[in-house]
Computed example of a mutant assay.
Amino acid sequence: MECVGPITCAWAFIGENVASIIATCAMAATFWQGYIARKHNKLSVKPFLDINRHSDYTAFSFKLSLVNQGLGPAIITSYSMKVEQKDCSYQHFHLKADELFKVLSEAVPDLDPIKLSIYTMEKGNAYIQPGEIIDILAINIPLEIYQTTDKALLRAKLDSISYCFDYESIYGQKSQAKYSNKNI
């Protein structure tokens, strides 16, 4: 087909290549839809870890719980605990309970180590499912011991505890959950 002016040439080019133009637009729309779907999928399985503090100062108990309030599983890559700015972490996934016990014993001299429970995660088994709650630290002091305890010192010691959890989603999106007295 011979062109007789610029408008005729443009229509001739479009007419001859309409299938290629439509196929290119369809492919671009497909790639865009794939990108949007992947972005949505990442958001639909994103975990959100929160650390909750529960205290009962009548019959003394203190508990820190880790909760996954997100939509997907959280993969814990590392975590650490500090007490009075001292690192209580060993290597991956193990905590030094004796450091925490030593600090708390200053406030509660008769503290029984059995009443202190610290959750440790084994490497490779550090998944927290959506809605799952894990008590990462629990302290129960019998009432007769708590009555003779320096309560202000005990609260100060408990307030010096901080945790940091590094975690990621199944898509590899990295996040952190932190707890310290400043969060309260």
Rank of each mutant, 00 (worst) to 15 (best):
D110L: 10
L111N: 01
D112T: 06
D112H: 07
P113L: 03
P113I: 01
I114Q: 12
I114L: 14
K115I: 01
S117H: 11
S117E: 10
I118D: 02
Y119W: 12
Y119R: 15
Y119D: 15
T120D: 13
M121S: 15
M121Y: 14
M121A: 15
M121P: 05
M121I: 13
M121G: 05
M121W: 15
K123P: 06
K123V: 10
K123W: 00
G124Y: 04
G124E: 01
N125Y: 15
A126I: 02
A126T: 07
A126P: 05
Q129C: 12
Q129K: 11
Q129D: 15
P130D: 09
P130F: 07
P130A: 09
P130H: 05
P130N: 08
G131Q: 07
I133E: 13
I133W: 01
I134N: 10
I134E: 03
D135L: 08
D135R: 06
D135T: 07
I136S: 04
L137K: 00
L137D: 05
I139S: 00
I139F: 07
N140V: 07
N140W: 06
I141M: 01
P142D: 11
P142K: 08
L143N: 10
L143H: 05
I145N: 04
I145G: 00
I145C: 00
I145T: 09
Q147T: 08
